[in-house]
């Protein structure tokens, strides 16, 4: 069963659709400023660094490092009682400096999650067809 299935609905708009469309193709793409090259996440109509409205969506490797994490023990709402404890991680991606992705690491014990842990993309499709970028721990770099 998909983790956190109860929360797995999305409502993209024109600004965020390129991210989610790419996910459906199993491609991780983040928005990058076409003028100064800074990544911005979540996607936005303007670059916070240079003010440019232009952006492109480069394909990323999916490799990254855990920047911070929490282990959620208290189910904030009753339907999540079956999901706790679960991890939430904030990931810095190797090829998208300055941007972070919020996600989960699959198949890892709570005690094994740590800051600095290396992770790799693991696509997760929900029963409703939402494709979420989740991650797996990398034990040995290829």
């Amino acid at each position: 069963m998909t983790m956190l299935a109860d929360l797995a609905s999305i409502a993209p708009d024109a600004t965020t659709a390129p991210f989610w469309d790419a996910c459906r193709r199993r491609e991780l793409r983040l928005q990058r400023c076409s003028d100064c090259g800074a990544f911005r996440q979540p996607p936005s109509p303007g670059c916070p660094h240079c003010g440019s409205a232009r952006g492109d969506w480069p394909l990323l490797s999916g490799r990254g490092t855990v920047f911070s994490f929490t282990i959620v023990h208290h189910a904030a709402v009753p339907p999540l009682a079956a999901d706790v404890p679960y991890n939430v991680v904030v990931i810095e991606l190797d090829d998208a400096p300055g941007a972070r992705l919020i996600s989960n690491v699959l198949d890892v014990a709570p005690d094994d999650v740590s800051v600095g842990m290396r992770v790799d993309l693991a696509w997760d499709e929900t029963p409703d067809g939402v494709v979420l970028p989740r991650f797996r721990r990398v034990t040995a770099e290829r």
Binding site: L7, I10, A11, T16, F69, I102, L132
Partner: peptide, 23 residues
């Protein structure tokens, strides 16, 4: 309801103030 900005945290179970600040 889901919305374009919460799409980047809600589906991953990051939904409450205690969780945001714990990170």
């Amino acid at each position: 309801a889901a919305d374009p900005l919460s799409d980047f945290h809600r589906p991953f179970g990051l939904i409450s103030p205690a969780q945001f600040f714990s990170l």
